[in-house]
Nucleic acid binder design. Structure first.
Lengths: 206, 206, 206, 206
DNA sequence: TATTAACCGAGACGGTACGTCCGGTCTTAGA
DNA sequence: TCTAAGACCGGACGTACCGTCTCGGTTAATA
């Protein structure tokens, strides 16, 4: 898949590339991912099918690129370090919740998720460009909190991110309930309790 | 979808029905869900295509039925109530972990998951026959623990099940790491901390 | 290729079969063989492409079948045996000339001829259904003439048919001149001279 | 089409031109005319596609040029005038037979023939560079024979060349039989009978 | 026990989209 | 400055399956 930020020098028509992504975004919104076809994308974009096959390996890859190009997903939601871990986690879980609650994003991300589940190549792309950056900044923030004594000193950061994000995605993917700020806040509280030193009282709130 | 336990009396050939499920199981293992086709199932099962369309609405539905028929998934993993909540949760998270770690189940369940994400009808089927029973028994067990004072008296049981299961599925679906008993145990510990009364003092910061 | 006179019992839709041939005939007339596509035939006939591929091996085969179905080409132009060999040969060469002079037949037969030149399977089909019957009746008539002493008793019938038909097709394919009855008659005269006993005077005219 | 003998002064690369013809000859031999593509020729010749389109209007034109460049076809088979018409005609029909019997020439000439049938431009090229010269020298030889009283004084020379060459090409194109010297000789004999004055008496009836 | 209606296997059917190939044009990099 | 290389738009290819349909040929429950 061609990188958005470092276009393949062999690519001749930037116009074609962006037309494909735009057409894809429109079509996903109009007819949904399931009914989306490469032919329809090519027709809408005014592009030969071969041009799509030349630069993307699969329909899922096109949609994923379009998803990234459409939003500010890449590079990620900011995860600030204000010293207040709860506030900082809320600052990431609330917008994530909002995005997943948005019907357009919901539909698109479900489609991408479905492809990822069965397409290792696309999964790798997703890891590299979306998930790993998010997990990395989250681990960084938690490491900082661990050093500040706000969470248990033996906290496994990999496990910690699962505890932070897992419940939210679980609710989303099985549609167990609405994704609200209030719900996100309670997940943050629960996560902090899980990460806090189990006893010893308190935890040093900022 | 025809119920497995209450066959439609109009169904003439139980043989055909089970041959379809068997063929589906084999083919998913052999060629994967993505390459699976109704025609291939029909051919392998020695069955007319119409027979499949008569009893199942979609490829996903057949695979889901085959998945249920193949294992003891339905009716669910037992969730005992020994009084030891941690042990009881381990008794459900460990086998779940094992199943998801098994390559065959992994592949099939990913396929089903992918369909569920975009097919509301299949999602409903999944909820009814797999997820809701599991969540129900889990909520029951947690309610019992809440009454026993083992977890906070104001625990939201819906939130609680997300905290129990979410992290595991998050790790599984994004392939963040191996699914081991040790990992399952640590998730149980984390969940219990999240659900515990803030004991002495401290607890979550406002 | 399915025989027109003995339809494959597996063929289910006679409607589809004849619609294909009709659409082909129309399209050849409208856009010519070169621009003819299987897709256009299928669309015009209201038929799936696969239905065409199921019954015909190539575009040329469809066109050839359509050509046969459209005219009385098959079974052939009558070659009577009136006892007057010259008259009988004129009775076959004149209509043949007329057909080749007709713009529609000309165009279609050129297309078929072009395919035959490079497609052995189609050539065999052409031999079986068009050429061989024509050559056979011609040889029969010439044999009869040989027995009647109208042509040399040692006449090679295979060579004779080449002499009868060759010059006409040569003129046609290279567009060396107009195909008229007068021309056909002169070819008949020439052929008879070539086949007559070289000397001994005359030949027994009826 | 660029003339071989009078290169366009604008042509920059004689190397490219001959590489195209050489590649074409090779490819026709290797994969046949039907599977031959402009792209393959360009790739094999180490030439840009545009270079081919610049100098030839169609695939058939390239092949025809390659055919001419490969052999001594152009300028034609010699048709001597020894005074012995039969011998002179054998001197042209025998080598023609031989050429058409050669598998390589057969294949290539069939391909060219197929294109000629449906491409007027290529037909004109073929007439100009191959057929007309051959017919012209043949007519000349027959005119000479007519003046010498060897054939009928009212012989139509256009008809005569059809009678001379038609049967051979007829046999060739429909693959009616092997092309041997013996066969060519018999065609010459037959042609001479057809063209001879009716000698003593008889001749054509009616 | 014979009839008959349904279900069954098989697979043809009208379609849609696939991923590939190639035609003919246009753009770029480099000799 | 021109060429090789090949990206580009377009469109047909032949294939794979879809979901529907039409066939005979069993069944299995009536009559």
């Amino acid at each position: 898949m061609a990188s958005r930020t470092a276009p393949d020098p062999a690519r001749r028509s930037e116009r074609a590339h962006s037309a494909v992504l735009a057409a894809t975004t429109e079509l996903v919104a109009e007819i949904g991912y399931g009914r989306l076809t490469i032919e329809a994308i090519a027709a809408r974009a005014g592009v030969g099918k071969q041009t799509i096959y030349r630069w993307w390996p699969s329909k899922g890859a096109v949609v994923f690129d379009a998803f990234l190009a459409a939003g500010e997903h890449e590079g990620g939601i900011a995860l600030p370090d204000t010293g207040d871990l709860a506030a900082d986690l809320r600052a990431v879980l609330r917008p994530t919740s909002d995005e997943l609650a948005d019907p357009d994003t919901d539909r698109t991300y479900r489609a991408i998720m479905a492809e990822i589940l069965n397409d290792p190549a696309l999964q790798a792309e997703h890891r590299t460009r979306l998930l790993d950056p998010l997990l990395a900044v989250t681990r960084d923030r938690l490491r900082s909190a661990r050093e500040a004594g706000q969470i248990a000193p033996d906290t496994d950061l990999d496990l910690a991110v699962e505890i932070v994000y897992g419940p939210l995605y679980y609710r989303w993917q099985y549609r167990l309930g609405p994704l609200t700020h209030e719900h996100a806040d309670r997940l943050v509280d629960a996560a902090l309790r899980a990460l806090n030193p189990p006893s010893a009282g308190g935890g040093s709130c900022a």
